[in-house]
Simulated scan of single mutants.
Amino acid sequence: MITEYDDEPIRGLPGELPEGETLIWQGSPEWRLLARSALFTRIVGLYFAVLVALAIINGSTTGVIATLIAGAIGIGLLMLYAWAVARTTVYTLTSRRVVLRIGVALNMCINLPLAKIGGANLRPLGPVEGDLALQLIGPHKLGYLVLWPHARPWKLGNPQPMLRALPDAAVVGERLARAVANFVPVDRAQEQVTSQGQTAPQANAMSAGLQGAVA
């Protein structure tokens, strides 16, 4: 599934598309949303705000200044990393596979055949923004640390690739559902995937054609 990134005849892909395979969608994480949802910059900011408040209560001017500087540096580094991740990440959906081109220092491409995708889960992060986690069928060799931050949180034993901080997550989910429905046999294309936080019509539109359910 994993091939080392070297050259890109097509952006985000390790080679030309084979005959009969078509490009359906490409996108990247929105870096500000990625910083908030995956790197928890708001929680980190709140933590430093509490430290500043405690320093003020204790009357430590030096402590206030030092905490403000440390907080600014910490949050700044997290946001810089989020920007770098978004800049180097390309998610691709074709008629046969999902490809994740990831890695800030060392790029790699992870190819996920549609036949290996048994379910999907949409985690809303806004009106149309969100994360899209992919549940894979059967054993695989994808490690959590290899995928991170493009991995569903806390799924350490059975890592699930996640398309992070998508500005059009609902649209991508629908396109993925249609692609899988068109690819797999009809008897496997069951509308059983649920989408957390969505209304029933939205969940049905998102999950049409995908097999299984993601909790």
Results as ranks from 00 to 15, higher is better:
H140Q: 10
T62P: 04
A66M: 13
N158I: 15
H150Q: 05
P139C: 07
R87Q: 15
R97D: 05
A151I: 05
P139K: 15
A38G: 08
L122F: 12
G74Y: 08
R36D: 13
R101M: 00
V44D: 05
A72H: 02
G130E: 05
W83D: 13
L142F: 06
D131W: 05
L46I: 13
G138E: 05
G130V: 01
L112T: 03
L39A: 07
I137G: 01
T67A: 04
G71M: 06
V98D: 00
L132I: 10
T88I: 03
A66P: 00
I75D: 00
S95Q: 03
V44L: 14
L156F: 15
L136C: 02
D131N: 12
L142H: 02
G119C: 10
L114T: 06
P113L: 07
L46S: 12
M108E: 10
I65C: 06
L77V: 04
I73A: 12
I65E: 07
G71S: 04
V64T: 11
T61D: 04
P127G: 09
N111M: 07
L156S: 13
P127L: 13
D131Q: 03
T88M: 10
Y144S: 08
I73H: 02
G119N: 05
R152P: 00
R42V: 14
V44M: 13
Q135W: 07
H140E: 07
G45N: 10
P124C: 09
I137L: 11
A151Q: 09
G157C: 02
W148V: 12
I43M: 10
Y81M: 12
T41Q: 03
V64E: 12
P113K: 04
E129P: 10
L39G: 03
T61E: 06
W154L: 15
G76H: 03
F48R: 04
V146S: 12
L39E: 05
E129W: 05
G59F: 03
A38I: 07
R97Q: 13
S37A: 14
A53Q: 08
L145C: 04
I110C: 00
A35D: 03
G130P: 01
A133M: 06
V90E: 00
V52C: 06
I69H: 05
I69F: 09
T88N: 14
T88D: 07
Q135M: 14
K141R: 13
Y47E: 08
L77N: 02
M79T: 11
V98E: 01
L80G: 10
L112S: 04
G76N: 07
L132N: 00
L122H: 08
L93V: 01
A35I: 06
D131H: 10
A86V: 07
V50F: 08
L78E: 04
G143L: 05
A70C: 11
A84E: 10
R97G: 01
R97V: 06
L100Y: 02
R42Y: 12
G76A: 05
C109M: 04
S95P: 00
A86W: 04
N107I: 01
I65Q: 07
L54S: 06
L147I: 00
G59D: 05
S37Q: 11
Y47D: 09
I69Y: 06
I75V: 13
Q135Y: 07
Y47K: 11
I65V: 14
I43E: 14
E129T: 09
